[in-house]
Design a protein around this nucleic acid. Structure first.
Lengths: 120, 120
DNA sequence: ATCGTTTTCAACCATATGGTTGAACAACTC
DNA sequence: GAGTTGTTCAACCATATGGTTGAAAACGAT
């Protein structure tokens, strides 16, 4: 599918069940059956969810006999927070500047009705 | 669909085109046609994307004659960062405390259900 | 070797999603 | 009113997604 990493992470966390699993894994590693226990779905469905989380780099798998413990990888979170913070910061900055601009706005030119001409 | 807010926001940002629109809107409000210009899709498709972003609370719409300018709403970002930070913090905390190592070498209660061959 | 446990693979189903085209609506201009 | 511009609505299509059931794979225990 060659989806970009950021899309994969956001997409993975767009599902409430998967977010819940992440929340659970934040407290400690767990196996698939352990993870599946609280939910009303089959283990196969949970296995699929884990595949999505792993594909996004949010979890890693190891091996312990038949079990395949799931481990939360926190680094990927940084990818998101970096993106989010950047644009939130820009938006807030712009908001602050707009405040200043509004404070210096004199009056309304009544004939200026063209599309993009911002009243030179 | 009654999807929860967090899912809607994550889902909205899971699409690279929509993230790009957010990036663009962080620099200033824009109309649908302005937003559609850089992409190779129809205006209707962009309109749909905007509906998703608006549904997630990421943008708001106003009216200026026929135009419907789009404005980025930064507050929703906090919803995400709060969620992310919480579990990243937990995961990092857990990692720092080496909880995993602690779990592998406890003083074994002998009456407990035996999971590893801890003999007397 | 056979059985039990844990996990995945495969096929399938229903619905959601991103895209299209074409028509309609809304507001300004003539 | 008629036309133009900006946007949305409606129907449709292809693919992705989350779920199911059933079989298979991987490993430990007997």
């Amino acid at each position: 599918m060659t989806t970009d990493p950021l899309s994969q992470v956001f997409s993975a966390l767009a599902d409430p069940t998967r977010r819940d699993m992440v929340a659970r894994l934040a407290e400690g590693d767990a196996t698939v059956t352990e993870l599946a226990e609280p939910y009303d779905v089959t283990i196969q469905a949970v296995s699929k969810h884990l595949r999505v989380l792993a594909g996004a780099g949010l979890v890693s798998r190891s091996r312990d006999a038949q079990r395949r413990p799931v481990h939360l990888e926190a680094e990927v979170f940084d990818l998101m927070t970096k993106w989010i913070d950047r644009y939130r910061r820009m938006a807030e900055e712009r908001y602050r500047r707009l405040d200043n601009l509004l404070a210096t706005m004199p009056d309304d030119p009544p004939t200026a009705r063209n599309s993009k001409g911002t009243t030179a």
